[in-house]
Design a protein around this nucleic acid. Structure first.
Lengths: 231, 231
DNA sequence: AAAATATGACTGACTAGTCAGTCATAGTCA
DNA sequence: TGACTATGACTGACTAGTCAGTCATATTTT
């Protein structure tokens, strides 16, 4: 390479909006025991690694950069992770698991199916679309084929559960007469597709043509449930 | 790295199902003038590069491997392309352009809007979903953020045109009363979303849970147009 | 023979991973 | 309590290897 073609990763000033650790008082807070400090460092490494991997992809990310961003020596990374690969794999688990936990903690099953799904979509909008986590989803799509274990994990923990949950909701909707089309239960992907497209769109094309994801999802739900009767 | 973790790229035996050149008689066919031979070599390089980039991503792909797969010395690549980066960029153009050309050559605008869209979907199924070109789309999603010029090109040549074409069809459908939901014209993405999801699904999750893309698209169109009246 | 092409050994910049040594903290003893 | 020792988290210079890009040489075409 004649010169570095890669654009700089998000500069350190713009910190992740999704942090693994508590606010991580950046400097000199020996608030803590050895174990605590170690945990903080690990979290700092995870945050830094996520930023770098999202910005550059797995292969092009340098461990030196992760170390610098985390404010840690390179060797320290190897105290916490076996190697670059397993760091990437663990990273995905660490970031994804709590999100799934939160999203699958459904709100009380009160109200119509549409209300349930709207609550779901609202969470998704807030927690994923247009956030670092959305970028992480794109990263998984990007690196999945080269990391079968990551793809497997993601399928098992996120996709299959999500599909199952959506299918259950759709079947409920059909049973209650809220949803007309009975075939929809066979392809819950259709229900989720616009949300996924929104994630990708924000990552790739937002600067060409911003997308009002919330409004789009509303239109999509109108399509499935029929126009929203203004309560 | 202690050992190569990457799985081998598709072995040379399994040739691309999408070739840039004519069948590329692999050995010794001096059928041709210099210019022709040069063009064949260039095409072989493009094919090989596509395979490798799809299998490994940009950063992890070695030019030595592309050369070997194309049956060419590494130096030869530099007779055709300035460097790895511009090879990738040109590659995308070279492969995408003819597909767009073919897909935008609409069949005679006869029949219902649904028929038009179904024809479109059929082409897309055949030409993209589950083919190397589908993988290329995933690759663009993957590398887009690191190759703004690729993302720009893809947006300009494929996405914006596709969206515009879909919008036109939707508006026609609304005008003719085939489509109920008027808001759909504001988000043609909704019409296309399941097809994109199918592309990604085949790439990432096919071996966990195969997806009948054709049937899914049919269900989706039923959702938009209402159940298909059996002609 | 001259020109156009093609080759692949070579170079140098770059980076994953290592490890001997440092030092703040935790633990022990008088 | 204060001094002294043990621990292991942390460091960063270093090694071994990789790979994009070059170019002197060989091969093919005209």
């Amino acid at each position: 390479m004649t010169k570095k073609p890669t654009m700089p990763a998000t500069p350190p000033a713009v910190r992740a909006n999704v942090s693994v650790a508590a606010p991580a008082s950046s400097e000199e807070a020996p608030t803590s025991s050895r174990a605590t400090r170690a945990a903080e460092r690990r979290a700092a490494i995870v945050d830094a690694a996520m930023e770098e991997f999202i910005a550059r992809g797995f292969a092009a990310t340098r461990l030196d950069d992760i170390a610098k961003r985390a404010g840690v020596a390179k060797g320290t990374i190897y105290l916490h992770f076996k190697d670059k690969e397993s760091m990437f794999e663990e990273l995905v688990r660490i970031v994804i698991v709590p999100v799934v936990a939160r999203l699958t903690t459904l709100p009380p099953p009160a109200g119509s199916v549409r209300d349930l799904i709207e609550a779901f979509a609202g969470n998704f909008l807030r927690e994923v679309i247009g956030t670092r986590r959305g970028d992480l989803v794109r990263l998984i799509v990007a690196e999945g084929p080269r990391f079968p274990s990551v793809a497997d994990f993601y399928y098992r923990e996120v996709v299959s559960r999500g599909i199952a949950a959506m299918r259950a909701l759709i079947e409920l909707g059909i049973a209650r007469g809220e949803i007309r089309d009975k075939d929809l239960a066979r392809y819950p992907q259709i229900l989720v597709a616009p949300a996924m497209i929104a994630v990708i769109w924000q990552s790739l094309f937002a600067r060409h043509a911003p997308l009002d994801a919330q409004d789009m999802l509303r239109v999509h739900l109108d399509l499935i449930f029929g126009e929203r009767r203004t309560t």
